[in-house]
Amino acid sequence: MRREKEAPWSGILVYVQCRRGELHPCSPELIGEALRLAEQSKEEVWVLGIGSGMEKVQKELQGYPVSRIFLYETDDLFLPGWYASLAAGCIRETRPSVVLIGGTLEGRALAPRLSVEFRTGLTADCTALAMDPDGNLIQTRPAFGGNVMASIVTEKSRPQFATVRPGVMEPVPRGKGFSPVCFVKSVFSEEKTVKITIREDETKGVAIGDCRLLVAAGRGVKKKEDLEMLYHLAEILGGELACSRALVEKGWMPPERQIGISGNSVRPECLITFGISGTVQFMAGMRQAKRIIAVNSDPEARIFQIAHHPICGDLYEIVPELIQSVEKEAGYQSGGV
């Protein structure tokens, strides 16, 4: 076998999810984190996008201070095997030391295929990243349901793959005067063995992961009917109602509204919990919320350990009062919206 002397692995490649010209909202976050890491390691930052509508994507990427952009115009919907083969081709050519991928449904399906392709390490759902002097990416993530944090390294192989959930890293704003070099390629999978169609009639379910404000209900709610006032509170605050596992098990709330390790990870600007004691599983799914206001009648409730504003009180007293004052504040007629 012919073996040329290969360039060392260097640079940080950011995989951005693109669909019909739209960049996934977590893209500026990943680019921002890559730039921060590159400052430590003095490396270049590149962007790789695979999907459709690349002409528009190219415009959307203008203004980010990255060195190069590689875009593959291809089949409209995500096919793990095909997208992985395109991404692998780009990685083989560019030889980045680090590849950052969004912890989305697409990213989490794609990343494992790439890590196997390159026989290298992948760390899921990193909450903090740093570079050591040897160019090793220090990947920190919660372990064991969030009881401990683990710092993980991929020392002996490259690239180092990491996924990061949306909402975790600080986004970088677009600036003026940056025009990265952009390479666009059109490639379509020849074999259409996998066919995908999106159901048009489907009404999208609630995505509590995308909400900036969440109200969450737990075991402290005594009857199913009492959830009405919490749904109402969430609505007038412009948010959604979420819950702990207990209420899903009772059949009072659907699983897509459940926060926790067995439900959804959420990172809202603000989370107000009512009657939630805070199991480990629950807290692992909301620890990243920017501001946690917790109301519970038990002063020993575990959630008070992590809440920014722990309040010992009765939800049945506080919620009706809160609804009234919010409505008054918003200029609503009392009693009706």
Partner: peptide, 13 residues
């Protein structure tokens, strides 16, 4: 840990 506050209905709201 942040300091726990005790609130009645009106105060809490």
């Amino acid at each position: 840990r942040k300091e726990l506050v005790y609130k009645s209905g009106v105060e809490g709201a």
